[in-house]
């Protein structure tokens, strides 16, 4: 039973999340800033009549911010009642991953990544980090950082 995943790039690394957690993907043309919002939040956008916060994964993953490019994408994910758009450098690919390709993250990475990486998928030379969407958008670490 292979599972469809959406693959995206942030700072040269490939990440993925299950396609059924993804509401949709959008090109990024800027967001409305929200003063005082949580760290890493660049603002809000409207997606299909719904207003969702945009979380910059570069900021979230502790990388230097870059200006948005034509490749920048919003990956709108859903967790229960919450929908959050992840701002990523690019997102082009949808992959089928077999369970045997998926391994737990190496312990060191598990510690460093604040639990954002749930597992690692290996396809020959290629490594794809499976993110834990719930943790990535979890607000508990965002305030007061």
């Amino acid at each position: 039973m292979s599972i469809l995943h959406v693959v995206f790039k942030v700072g040269g690394t490939e990440y993925a999340m299950p396609a059924d957690e993804v509401l949709q993907m959008e090109s990024y043309g800027g967001a409305t800033p929200v003063p005082g919002a949580a760290r890493g939040v660049v603002g809000i956008v409207q997606v299909r009549g719904r207003v969702v916060p945009v979380l910059d994964l570069r900021a979230r993953f502790g990388l230097e911010p870059i200006a948005a490019t034509l490749n920048s994408r919003l990956v709108v994910g859903q967790d229960g009642a919450r929908s959050v758009a992840l701002l990523v450098d690019s997102a082009r690919e949808v992959l089928k991953l077999d369970p045997e390709q998926i391994e737990p993250p190496p312990p060191m990475m598990a510690d460093d990544s604040q639990g954002f990486v749930r597992a690692v998928a290996r396809m020959g030379e290629r490594l794809v980090m499976l993110i834990d969407f719930k943790r990535v958008i979890g607000e508990e670490r965002l305030h007061g950082e």
């Binding site: 409305t32 929200v34 003063p35 005082g36 919002a37 949580a38 939040v41 809000i44 409207q46 719904r50 207003v51 969702v52 916060p53 979380l55 919450r82 929908s83 959050v84 958008i137 607000e139 965002l142």
Partner: peptide, 17 residues
């Protein structure tokens, strides 16, 4: 007015969008 309810953007003084 659509309320902004996500915890990421819940801010005093901003009631919605």
């Amino acid at each position: 007015v659509r309320p902004l309810e996500d915890p990421l953007v819940r801010v005093i003084g901003i009631s919605g969008a």
